[in-house]
Amino acid sequence: MDTIPLIAPATPDRDSLKRRLERAGFDAITLLLLPAVLFVVVLFVYPALYGFWLSLHPMNGGGWLANYIAFFSDPYVYGTIITTLELAVPVTLVNLALSVPIALRVRHMRHQRLLTTLLVIPVTLGTVLTAQGMLNYFGPLGWFNRVLMSLHLIHMPVRLVHNFTGVFLSQIIGGFPFCFMLVLSYVTGIDPSLENAAAMLGARAAQRFRHIILPLLAAGLAITFCLAFVQAFSVFPSAVLVGAPSGPTRVIAIAAFHAAYEEYDYSMGSAIAIIMGFVQIIVVALVMWISSLFYRGPAGGGKG
């Protein structure tokens, strides 16, 4: 602008609105967000709402709650929640319990990257390949059983696939690396001089863990638990491939898939998906509430 307008601009309202928006932070660059936001709204928010609406309009008539009533009145269907919880909660706890001590050791390691790289492999390979490998490896004639038998630890092959154990193992193989990496990143966030300080004050390893590491890690462990739990709770391919999908490992995802794709009842399928999400939210809320009772804040020792 090289001239100062002597008369007020012709469109003062529009101009000031634009400026007001800019002052609030909405300028051209903020608008770059718009396509991505629209995309997520159309393909995530809308489907979620549509799914909810669909679940309240049962395909076979009945009241708007008919799908939910049907779900909770058939033990074969609502039992899938229990089955899934029985699988997902222990798997997540085991993964966390394994991750913490290993992460505490690995943080002092020089070749961390090699180990983390090795551990990313199962995450990359995904559950389907893991399942196929497990059928070979843990099968009655697979290497695992052969080794145990030739070591005379067992006389008969152990059944490790096509049952609950199979899904459990596959969830550990796929879930442990994920848990471990998250826990490792939280553990490395704890200033090592805090542990040294505790040691100098006479705290032994177990006391240092209980009084220093654990409280500082609590919030991170809760988040890790939640993320790992929701993954485990929505297990599908391994429950079908290395589990017993019609019985002991009939998880809720199978029930949802069965309703939507084998009975072509998208309304019921959406209802089950929403129940699935709801159970996840309850567990996550519960865990976050428990962890809120602990210290939340920076895990550094310096100026806070």
């Binding site: 599908f236 998906a273 699935m276 996840q280």
Partner: peptide
Amino acid sequence: VLPLIIPPFTYGIPLASV
């Protein structure tokens, strides 16, 4: 963040129906 932390199977069926 929601699509990243909610497992795909949870929203996959509503998404597929859309």
